[in-house]
Design a protein around this nucleic acid. Structure first.
Length: 412
RNA sequence: GUGGGUGUAGCUCAGUUGGUUAGAGCGCCGGAUUGUGGAUCCGGAGGUCGCGGGUUCAAUUCCCGUCACUCACCCCA
């Protein structure tokens, strides 16, 4: 299917390191995992994401349930997490206010590099605190995660949209500035003037950038409290030595964002270079009929992380042993050893087709086995086993009775 | 939704103005005497040339359509 990918065994080491790092760092920052359904009632997304957004207008996988209820495969995680927090009454519990999730999202878009219809996100939501330190903590986790994986060419941009009244004032100023200049805008932006003028800010069409040259600046419209909040966020980032640049034109695509917004791009990625982004969404819970609770969070596109992941970030494969046993007695002894190791959680494998030492060793080599246990009839007769190191070609001899423990200690 | 590019062996790709048994490298399988892998040499298997139609005596090659993949626009993670 278009834009839907299999993740093959060869790709899994990268995924494992990306996911393990996510779990480890999220825990280190005091976030706890939550798993929510992969689809929700469509209404949830209509109410939270904004009707005029591209995501809602044309990218959702929406289908009727058997009773006619409209359902939608989740296109992002924040709305679902917020719904779950309300349903499960998590907000009052201090230990359940910092949550993270990992899993597939679905958007019906034309696929291209780093963009698929089913893709995966690692996201966090910090709920209940309007303090700038919540913003700092979330941004710090985002930055720590991406740098821990040693992704090249990262750049963090931040902005503040202010409180809703600030944004309304600015939007009004922007529209009045653009009135009469419609002819200089691209068709898309002319449409945006009606539905979402802020999005004209980050239009990439040159003529629109020219037309916006002298447009009113969003930071000038921040209320004193918004400005103070934003200043304190920046102060925290400086203390933590997290490099950032201010981008007064950074506007996020979803309607629920207010105040702080941020985005990390990765120059190693190509056109779709946003690797992680997020912001504050203080009105979201009320919009869903829940308790008033501010929140801030981010989402990271894991496919994009994998694309940028340097090859040497992958851990070396764990050592294991190939059992090369042949002859009637040798095979029997090899079979016992094979399962004894497995019972100890030691990776051990063989090739049941191969019957000669030559073919067994060839099979071991092809599977990339670092060690081979050789057991033929002669070995059984002498009550011994040969353990061969495939890289150094060194061989040691052990009694069959202690073969399992000898191999285990050799692999460590 | 719009535009460009590409579809030939498991993989990466050749294929000459349309011409008869469609090739290479890598990989895979086997062999080079009896219980030691990788190297070398020799041999072998494997292809509806994406699919459908059209032009032609003849199509992998030209034309149309279609599907898939891919990159970009839009937008986003």
């Amino acid at each position: 299917m278009k834009g839907i990918k299999d993740i093959t065994p060869d790709e899994m080491p990268g995924w494992n390191i990306a996911e393990r790092t996510a779990h480890a760092l999220a825990h280190a920052f005091g976030f706890r995992e939550i798993r929510i359904p992969i689809f929700e009632k469509t209404d949830l997304y209509l109410r939270t994401l904004g009707h005029a957004t591209d995501l809602v207008e044309k990218e959702m996988y929406t289908f009727p349930d058997r009773d006619g209820t409209s359902l939608t495969l989740r296109p992002e995680g924040t709305a679902g997490v917020a719904r779950a927090c309300i349903d499960q009454r998590l907000v009052p519990h201090p230990a359940s206010r910092k949550l993270y999730y990992l899993g597939p999202m679905f958007r019906h878009e034309r696929p291209q590099a780093g963009r698929h219809r089913q893709f995966h996100q690692f996201g966090v939501e910090s709920i209940g605190s309007a303090d700038p330190h919540a913003d700092i903590e979330v941004i710090a986790l985002l930055w720590t995660y991406l740098t821990a994986l040693r992704l090249p060419g990262l750049a963090l941009e931040i902005n503040s949209l202010g409180h809703p009244p600030d944004r309304r004032n600015y939007t009004a100023a922007l529209v009045s500035f653009l009135n009469g200049k419609e002819a200089h805008l691209c068709g898309n932006c002319r449409r945006r003037m009606e539905i979402n003028p802020l999005r004209i800010l980050d239009c990439k069409v040159p003529q629109c950038r020219d037309a916006m040259q002298d447009a009113p600046s969003l930071p000038n419209f921040l209320s004193p409290s918004s400005r103070q909040h934003f200043d304190r966020v920046q102060h925290g980032l400086r203390i933590l030595d997290i490099p950032y640049t201010l981008n007064p034109r950074l506007v996020r695509g979803l309607d629920y964002y207010v105040q702080t917004t941020f985005e990390v791009s990765c120059s190693a990625l190509g056109a779709q270079n946003a690797i992680g982004a997020g912001g504050r969404y203080d009105g979201l819970f009320q919009k869903l009929g829940g308790p008033a609770a501010p929140g801030v969070g981010f989402a990271i596109g894991l496919e994009r992380v994998l694309l940028a992941l340097p090859g040497d970030a992958l851990p070396p494969p764990a050592p294991w042993v190939f059992i090369a046993s042949f002859g009637d007695k040798g095979k029997a002894a090899g079979l016992s050893l094979l399962y004894a190791l497995r019972a100890q959680h030691i990776k051990a494998d063989t090739d049941h087709q191969a019957s000669t030492l030559k073919t067994l060793l060839r099979a071991a080599h092809r599977l990339g086995a670092p060690f081979v246990a050789i057991i033929g009839d002669d070995e059984v007769a002498d009550d011994r086993m040969i353990l061969r190191d495939m890289t150094t070609k060194e061989q040691e001899i052990h009694p069959l009775g202690t073969a399992t423990s000898a191999i285990i200690s050799r692999l460590r």
